[in-house]
Amino acid sequence: MSEARAQSFRFNTGAATTHAILIVGALIVLLPFYTMISLSLKAPHEIMQQTGGFIGAQEAFRDDYCVKLGNAAENCMVNPIIYNYSTAFEKAPLVRYLLNGLIVTVSIFVIQVLVALPCAYALAKLRFWGREAVFALVLFCLLIPVHAIALPLYIMLAKAGLTNTYAALIIPWTISVFGIFLMRQFFMTVPDDLIDAARMDGMTEFAIIWRVMLPTAIPALMAFGIFSVVAHWNDYFWPRIVITGNRDLFTPPLGLREFKGDADGDNFGPMMATACIIVTPLIVCFLLAQRRFIEGITLSGMK
């Protein structure tokens, strides 16, 4: 009996050690999220003096910029949270940036699907001369990271007069060879009978793609969509290169970076508020649909 107790004790210490290690890891992982949220709630002097704990005292403080504009000091007292978040929206057209982010990520995903789906269908289900060569080309293109060829792409876009346009943000991502590859593998598993039946009913090949194949591919497409949207919402490198001066075209990461560029001590709060606003949409979606997100993001690793 004592042996059994020793066994269960050992098991418990084992589990406790595991939890202890994982909790330390979790604290380190969460540290910047904690800092980000905390700073977005606090007043400038609390940030500089590192006082106020997590949410700060939430006392109204004097907004010096407001005083400088000639207002009476008593009219310029603001609550830190309201100050930080309202400054985030006032100092830069943050709503516009968020909208740009949405436009760009959605356009990229829609065009990727429009281009990749028919190609994947042809590669999986049609027999034609050169099919193997096309597939080999797809496999070769999988080797190329688009970020790495940014320079020639930038030159091509500049020559076409397209820098500082939505087109520049979208065009390099319209072709997803990974999407083609993924959809092709998926379509291979769709039974031929389904397609033959559709042909008997007189459907054109075009109609088959959108009315027969697309509905069967919804789960795979969702995973791919998450993969694509997360990558392009968070992308900083490419917008940085093709959007040089035009603030109307800034995506959220560029907006945040601009904020950092001219942030003095007073602006840490609003800057962190901006960071929170940019990070939140994806994090909330992730927490709501974790399994789908993990599936989507790690899609490239599934075999």
Binding site: F128, T174, I175, E205
Partner: peptide, 28 residues
């Protein structure tokens, strides 16, 4: 009919693969 359809399906993807991925490598 099927013999022509595939050209429409792989055409856009092929064109973009060349323009966006392969030609830039040659340019580089």
């Amino acid at each position: 009919m099927q013999s022509r359809a595939h050209l429409w399906f792989i055409g856009p993807a092929m064109a973009l693969m060349f323009i966006v991925l392969l030609i830039p490598i040659l340019i580089a």
